[in-house]
Design a protein around this nucleic acid. Structure first.
Length: 314
DNA sequence: TATCGCCCAGCGCTGTAACG
DNA sequence: CGTTACAGCGCTGGGCGATA
């Protein structure tokens, strides 16, 4: 159970999140807060509804600290919390959120690279969402797989006790056009920064600009050839004393993003949606049985010494 | 006058490359 | 394989100017 390729990559992604000092410090405060929100005998509803409270959870640490340390760390912390939450809600599905770029399959990395002349800029993305194709390779226990590399040699799913990324690299090349790709731009504040996701979304939507030698993708991998591509924005927002209304520039700039704009609060019509809505908006095809069914099945496994205990919810 | 959007500068954390 | 060094990255909140 939870031993498919997507779920192995998910585990790697979450272990990476927990490996940073910033997240470990935050987690000491966040974990009790999250467990309190979940309550006893929680269901898939309580798990999903964490999305309405992510901003409160985030603000429970730091508390307006203006030190450069906290300032710098907060961006990482928000990204990490969003990554944790998305993976929690998608456990058991073929949807995986990855924060660390180097564990994203190479072909996907290539596809989302924007080339400005011969300079590859924006190879980084805050969080990359992968929806693995609905093929046997991605629904089967990795111990029963027999995947051959280009030399005809079987790829070991586990190498030196670690998930072997050669597996995902190879399969993403082979099945590239059946992958769905999502980029999530995380920002703790909203106002001025809304320009950044707006502009990148324009470039991705336009598919580059030939006359100016601005292109997307490299090594033959292009988001146009993937199954789908979406660009989303997720903010806290940390701005104090700011009321967001549907006509504000910051709001207008992100409401038309291909993947939508979200925050860690309950949805407000025409302003921002709760992050919990991102699953029905963008990544529905990543589950055979449906999101809620997957979460329901995952809940017993979140406890100590079970297959999803790496989420730290015990 | 009230509101809104835009601008500014800095320093510690993280990840990666280089090294032993 | 473990350690070190370094380069790149990001968030905040007040003030100013433009507009209604």
């Amino acid at each position: 159970m939870y031993n498919t390729i997507p779920d192995q990559l998910r585990k790697l992604a979450i272990e990476n999140v927990f490996s940073t000092n910033t997240y470990q410090n935050c987690w000491r405060t966040w974990q009790p807060e999250i467990l309190r929100l979940l309550g006893n005998n929680y269901t898939e509803n309580e798990i999903l509804n964490i999305g309405d409270h992510l901003s409160d959870i985030f603000r429970s640490t730091g508390g307006g600290g203006r030190g450069q340390g906290e300032l710098s760390a907060s961006g990482t912390a928000w990204e990490s919390l969003v990554c944790w939450y998305i993976n929690l809600c998608t456990a058991g599905s073929r949807v995986v959120a990855v924060k660390k770029m180097s564990i994203v399959p190479k072909a996907i990395q290539d596809a989302i690279t924007v080339n400005y002349g011969n300079f590859a800029c924006n190879t980084e993305s805050d969080i990359t969402i992968l929806v693995f194709p609905d093929l046997p390779e991605y629904n089967t226990n990795i111990n029963q797989l027999n995947i051959l590399n280009n030399l005809g040699i079987q790829i070991q799913p586990i190498l030196r006790n670690k998930f072997n990324l050669e597996l995902t690299n190879h399969l993403a090349e082979k099945d590239f056009n059946q992958f769905e790709i999502g980029i999530i731009q995380c920002k703790t504040n909203w106002n001025d920064n809304a320009q950044i996701p707006m502009l990148w979304d324009m470039i991705y939507s336009a598919g580059g600009f030939r006359g100016r030698n601005i292109t997307i993708g490299r090594n033959g991998y292009n988001i146009q050839n993937a199954q789908s591509f979406s660009y989303s924005f997720v903010t806290v927002p940390s701005n104090q004393n700011t009321v967001y209304n549907p006509n504000g520039v910051a709001v207008k700039r992100v409401t038309n993003l291909s993947g939508g704009n979200y925050w860690g609060n309950p949805s407000i019509q025409n302003v921002a949606k709760s992050l919990k809505e991102i699953f029905t908006n963008n990544f529905q095809s990543g589950s055979r049985t449906g999101l809620r069914t997957d979460i329901r099945a995952a809940i017993p496994e979140l406890t100590a010494n079970n297959s999803l205990s790496y989420f730290g919810l015990y």
